[in-house]
Design a protein around this nucleic acid. Structure first.
Lengths: 239, 239, 239, 239
DNA sequence: AATGAATGAGTATTCATTCAT
DNA sequence: AATGAATGAATACTCATTCAT
């Protein structure tokens, strides 16, 4: 029975699940360890058997989230080749995307959309965690850098996967302060906010699940095109 | 003696200022009444003289924020006529914006941008409060509805100002679920996030003040145009 | 009613008294803040109103003890003149006490005994605190230096009293490592131990109060004489 | 198979060693079972396999200490004859030591010093345990009687060794309340304190090992003589 | 208007100890 | 003999709030 690491202990998972629920409801500071224990149905002291303190629970959750996002990126990178099928990626010339031809541009949009879609669905699935991450990231003196770790796709984010080419590509791209800025406020923050406010919005506006997501993706499609246009503009300014 | 309300007592203002600082740093739950008293330089018990409990401080802050946003909207409404100078607003036909001519469209974009710019600068000025509002709004069981009050420009939001016409116009517009959705996730949330993450982003990416704001507004300009395009599309779908 | 500092608040004193009792019974770590509160008849939180943490109570007690010992030393110094009446103090020559004549020696012994007696009675009165001090000083990683502060009669121990002459005299005397050593293990430690074990010894051997003290002082008398003999010996070795 | 008791299991010894270190550093209450387990490098539950509870560890340590002191006394008793070689012990008449002649007195002093020296070196070796014993004995409600067991040389202290004669002799001697008192405060407590404060004193006064011990023994020599003088005095009073 | 003192309920965390294996 | 998991009760400390003045 080597599945010692695999099961991670049922109790520990119950603690993590309860923590997610409560942190998402009340924030990290608003939820108490006692509550978590009660909801998880475990003894309070057991929490300190598995985690060195309350903050360590949060850290553990965020690390899981980081890893799952890394996984999405890695999976996507590995499948990219077949998505591209023949077409080439745009060249990056001084931070400006240069496409070989119109078809290459459409192909680029298509695979970017595919990635975005995958990401959005994953974020929705993890929306409670996203909510927690946003709450804690907004506090100014939070030492937490998790949101920014994700936002900036730091190199250590990607292990030895064969997606190095893409990462290098993105890194060069992100190197432009303006691009990083754009992606943070106009791409990452909206996706995260969408996930974070998902339940609240649905409850208040009574939207159907599928409808909401489709709508969101449609807009992102438009925004992607507007980004490409913006990119050519700022690149022009830089040159 | 209306100046009683105006000065609101120096002590009370010190309490409010200290609360903003601490809530923005640590969130509502993370900041304690004792800390607030110490930072404000007042006796803890005095806080309970001015506010009925800790939550009442938050409520008071949010109401101030709401009012200041209302004021911006009202000021804008009052000045709108001279901005329009001759051109007419688009007609709303089944949620679709219909412009008389190209110039009317440009004029619409211009005054919308002007409003947006005013709003963004105001939000930056109040960024600590925005941060607090976002933190508290993200918590799922927060009874708070403030963010959504703002988001939906509810009628009670606007006192007896002469901007009724605009409000009615917007209301009709917002009536479309899809529009409301669009505006929430692609207009309001980005502006609020921009204000909320302003300091953090600046600290990490070392961006200059003016630069950041200009960049943000430029993108919003592009997005506004993409919204108009989107609007015509969804309107087509509805019909 | 300016006696604000004088009364130090009845509640605070109750807390201190309860702390002494419990620390003396169970040691610092063995006594809990809850117990102290219960014994003192005050709310637990009030303890943290007056003291910043549990350790601060101990610190406060030790400082009081230090001050009371300082007071004894100061009082004695101020009265010394009339005790000496005519006779002179011995000279210190290379750490060796040199007396003018036999009478001067007896006089020295007499006033030293008088000081010792005063000290012993004071220590008995404060025996609980002495017990606490010894317990905590014995722990090796105790950051506490209180016992050694007392033991070494550090200069800052004596304020601006007119006993400077005596202090300087003692300091010169203490300068000898061997003397400091002698006084620590053969003078201070026995007095402190006597006070610390006073109650236990009485309970087990059923000794009368007065009898015990007299006996102890008699032995100290003999030891003082043996010290003087020892002093002349070690001084001889040093020369 | 008596070597079962002898080796006592390596694990058990590791636990005992760790306990000594930690109790000596922080006192019994200040050290936790978890810490002990960690320092010993064993599983916490194993401690409860070897000891019935935390207190049982302490009890076990104290019993070892008692036994080792007994051993010193027994060894000494067994070697006494050859030390005496010819001279006789003093007679005890009404608690007063009566010597046959001057040489007998010197011989008594010599063998007493020899015993003392052996004891002091043994105590220094066991100084951590002594420290623990003193800390716990000082607490007033400690049920522990170990220090007093040692102090009073209770009969059950000595098994069936051939030292019965000496023990009986001492018992008669100790019978005098005043003697018992003298020995406790002026002989036992200083030796124990010397061992207990040994490390602290060395650290603060930066004394060399050998130097300190020699100095201490020299003083004890003087005190022994002063004790004999004192003994003749009190004996006079009793008669 | 402003404060020092006081409180009950709660916080995170650690404790000694036990149990199943 | 040895361990990982589990627990109930306690720990030091803080909280929001109140009260008398």
């Amino acid at each position: 029975m080597k599945n010692k690491n695999e099961k991670t202990s049922a109790m520990k998972n119950k603690i993590l699940a309860a923590s997610i629920s409560l942190f998402a409801q009340k924030g990290f500071d608003g939820a108490s360890v006692s509550e978590i224990a009660k909801l998880a149905g475990v003894n309070k002291a057991l929490i300190y058997y598995y985690f060195k303190n309350k903050n360590d629970i949060l850290e553990s959750l965020f690390n899981d989230l980081l890893q799952s996002i890394q996984q999405i990126a890695a999976d996507f990178a590995n499948n990219r080749k077949q998505l591209l099928n023949g077409s080439s990626m745009p060249e990056l010339i001084d931070g400006k995307l240069v496409f070989n031809d119109a078809e290459a541009k459409e192909q680029f949009i298509k695979i970017t959309k595919a990635f975005y879609e995958t990401l959005v669905y994953a974020m929705i699935e993890q929306r409670k965690l996203i909510r927690i991450l946003m709450i804690e990231s907004l506090k100014y003196n939070s030492k937490d850098k998790h949101l920014f770790k994700i936002a900036t796709l730091q190199p250590d984010f990607f292990g030895g996967s064969d997606m190095e080419q893409l990462v290098n590509y993105l890194m060069e791209f992100y190197g432009s302060k303006k691009t990083r800025f754009y992606l943070f406020f106009h791409s990452l923050v909206p996706v995260f906010s969408f996930a974070a406010f998902y339940d609240k919005f649905r409850a208040i506006y009574d939207s159907g699940d599928e409808e909401m997501v489709k709508e969101f993706l449609l807009v992102n499609d438009l925004q992607l095109r507007s980004f490409i246009e913006w990119n050519s503009r700022i690149a022009d300014q830089q040159s």
